[in-house]
Design a protein around this nucleic acid. Structure first.
Length: 275
DNA sequence: ATAAGGCCCTGACCGC
DNA sequence: TGCGGTCAGGGCCTTA
């Protein structure tokens, strides 16, 4: 699943491909992909726009345009944004086709159709609910602790809440909780100060390691939820300690990794190393 | 305000 | 081999 490290990799690797390129127009094959404006008006509004800046906020890709507008892309589960040759085959999963001024095509593909695209004058309107960026100074131990204080929901559930901290998804939540030695089912408000600090540090560590490995590529047999824009796989899936390792030995103590469901999400942990 | 559950989607997988 | 049922899950929505 594209989470913060995967989206960061996307932005870094797409930037050199798109910098200075102009979009000539768009064909929308699945209208719900376009969140803002509506799919009918999107082609006219994107035509003539030129990419100048590249950023990320949480799991949102921010493609800044010379007009001052921002093309925002959220890949959700299975979205892919890639630049391909002008004669590339447009398959049934390609929901938006944007020809570029160099003859290539910017494609948005998404088999699950959960991904969304916005073209807006003010990106903040779309991003308003997001909590702090975990790798920036605005994400502090104290602020994190305040957000968890008094909450009865499980810490795992709150790590997935993008208003608590932006960019953490199911993979990095489980891996961060393992590294911090905290059981995912713990009520968030019961974490002690030392545990909050350990989790804060673990979140940063797993995200940074994820970025260094260009993200996590996983998928059931062949179908990858995430591949880098150029088609290569990420490498962080080989570093998982607990995620999707149910029944396999904990790399620290050898106890079989357990799986439970929290907040309707698969959750993996070591019952001995995590307390 | 918080917590819990449903919904959107489709490909992979499982059991019969 | 074919087929129906189940699972995966990010973010948003509704309900209590």
């Amino acid at each position: 699943m594209p989470e913060l490290p995967e989206v960061e990799t996307y932005v870094r690797e797409l930037a050199p491909e798109l910098a200075g390129r102009q979009v000539l127009g768009a064909r929308v094959n699945w209208s719900r992909t376009i969140a803002t404006p509506d799919a009918e008006h999107f082609p006219g509004l994107i035509a003539g726009q030129r990419f100048v800046t590249f950023g990320r906020r949480g799991k949102y890709m921010l493609l800044g345009l010379a007009s001052g507008m921002t093309l925002i892309v959220h890949l959700r589960m299975t979205g892919h944004l890639r630049v391909e040759a002008g004669d590339a085959v447009i398959d049934q999963h390609t929901h938006v086709v944007m020809p570029l001024d160099d003859g290539r095509l910017l494609l948005f593909q998404d088999s699950r159709k959960f991904g969304r695209i916005w073209l807006v004058p003010d990106a903040e309107v779309v991003l308003a609910r997001l909590g702090p960026e975990p790798l920036e100074d605005s994400f502090t131990v104290d602020g994190f602790g305040l957000r968890l204080n008094g909450r009865s929901a499980s810490i795992k559930t709150l790590l997935l809440d993008q208003s608590i901290v932006a960019g953490v998804g199911n993979i990095y939540a489980d891996e961060a909780l393992f590294r911090a030695g905290i059981l995912p089912a713990r009520a968030a408000g019961t974490l002690e100060a030392g545990e909050v600090a350990a989790l804060h540090a673990a979140i940063r560590a797993v995200l940074e390691e994820g970025i260094a490995k260009a993200g996590s590529s996983l998928g059931k047999s062949g179908l990858q939820n995430y591949v880098r824009p150029g088609g290569e796989l990420g490498g962080f899936q080989d570093e998982f300690k607990v995620f999707r390792r149910t029944g396999l030995p904990c790399p620290v103590c050898g106890t079989p990794v357990e799986r439970i469901v929290l907040g309707q999400r698969s959750t993996h942990f070591c019952p001995v190393c995590q307390r």
